Simulated scan of single mutants.
Amino acid sequence: MDALLSTFLSVFLAEMGDRTQILAAALALRYHKNGAILAGLALATLCNSALSAAGGSVIDQWISEAPVKLFAGLAYIFAGAGMLMWRRTVDPLTNWKLPAFLTAFLGLFILEFGDKSQFIIAAQSARTPYWGMALIGGFTGIMAATIPAVLLRERLAQIVPLKPIRWISGGLLLLWGFMLATQAFGIS
């Protein structure tokens, strides 16, 4: 249960104000088909979360506990730093001539591939024998952060103060990462 909750919370924080939210909202504005956008988002997120969790479970079998903690610490440090740094603008995929579902699935799959949440899910999977819980936690964390962006679209930024949330979330992820990294070296 720890893997599920900690992965959910950290991925949810990492996705607030992230490019996944922005692209999902832009696609919802463009197509006006929430169901198709949400289905594409769900499939893309499930695929990426499954790849991450499977990769993390393999890492767990190859290396000992200290390097796994260091990997987890670095995943959180880079996620936190990424939230605090300047970000590139998101391509709204206006040149893509595919139906809503395919555009959402392919666009969000590509955008999420190698993203900070994928590394957090992999790190959490490597830290526990219950990698399926990390998969579920990561999937639900991304979905919980992104569904409101699809449903609320541009109003999300008016309702939720995304910039302060990004700063607080980034700081929390950095702190969590430094704690894990110091544990890897036996400092704390």
Rank of each mutant, 00 (worst) to 15 (best):
D18W: 04
F8D: 13
I22T: 12
G138S: 03
W176L: 13
A126R: 06
L156F: 08
I59V: 15
T182Y: 09
A122Y: 01
K163H: 11
A100M: 02
R166M: 14
L111Y: 10
V150W: 08
S125C: 07
P164R: 14
A54Q: 08
L41W: 01
L151K: 09
A134C: 01
D60T: 13
F101R: 09
R155I: 01
D91V: 01
G137K: 01
Y76H: 15
L162S: 10
M85A: 12
S52W: 00
I168G: 13
I136N: 09
A181I: 00
L172M: 12
T45N: 08
F78Y: 13
A79T: 04
L74H: 03
W96N: 10
S64D: 12
D2V: 05
L74K: 03
A126V: 03
I159D: 05
F78N: 05
P129R: 06
Q61A: 15
I63E: 07
T182V: 06
W167D: 13
S169H: 00
G114R: 01
Q118D: 00
L135Q: 10
G170N: 12
L51A: 15
A157W: 06
N34G: 03
L29S: 12
T94G: 10
K116L: 02
F78T: 12
Q183L: 06
T182E: 13
G82T: 04
L5M: 10
